[in-house]
Design a protein around this nucleic acid. Structure first.
Lengths: 108, 108
DNA sequence: AGCATACTTAAGTAACCACTTAAGTATCAT
DNA sequence: ATGATACTTAAGTGGTTACTTAAGTATGCT
């Protein structure tokens, strides 16, 4: 392991689990309480809350507790951070490829 | 854990480690042999090869061995798969937000 | 007050992950 | 053929992750 980074670690780690991606997908349709978020899954509530903790720790999700109900929603800015990291590297490589391609065509 | 998916699991898992992201970053600048890829890191060669295995297993990197040298390069298509998954969810949520915003302004 | 709801805390476990060292194999160079 | 290079295989270890069950706390309802 090297540098901790601005928490790309935590974001990608959070995205690496299918349960958490489904939870994120659910939150795409609007905010949800912990119970609502847990409903589709067959696992225990504490397990769901632990997943939620990972999502929140990564910054991808924000939650707020009012009374006894905790409500969760997506944080699009954090999503963009992860997305951008991939995008930058991908396009750099694609540019290299097309430059090589052009070169090969020229020397052809 | 639920569905395995088309291996978004493996891609995001691969991206979750800073060493692997650095390796990917290196490969952005062009193909590299295993030794070249390992050079910047202080860890053992087998450790680097294990990381490389994760990257390759996720489809983000492709390698080919010629003689005794294994050469590695980025697979931009796989990168795009991961990128797109995030992007779709992020934009859906952003649309929801701006729709809500517009609604609030109208009723204001 | 008494009971249900909505989490929360704690503790334990089995599987996985990121390394390590040591030893091995396949090529290439002389 | 000999030695160096470029990985490869195997086995082990300590830390983390994804759960579990059991019990606890805080809030809202009647």
């Amino acid at each position: 392991m090297l540098s901790p980074g601005p928490s790309l670690d935590l974001m990608f780690q959070a995205l690496a689990d299918p349960t958490r991606r489904l939870m994120l997908e659910r939150l795409t349709k609007g905010p949800a309480t912990v119970s609502q978020l847990a409903a589709p899954f067959s696992m225990s509530l504490p397990a769901v809350v632990q997943h939620l903790g990972v999502l929140e720790g990564s910054g991808l999700v924000r939650t707020e507790k009012i009374g006894r109900v905790r409500t969760c929603h997506i944080e699009p800015i954090a999503m963009r951070t992860a997305e951008d990291w991939i995008g930058e590297r991908r396009t750099t490589w694609e540019k290299r490829l097309s430059a090589l391609d052009a070169y090969l065509r020229r020397t052809e």
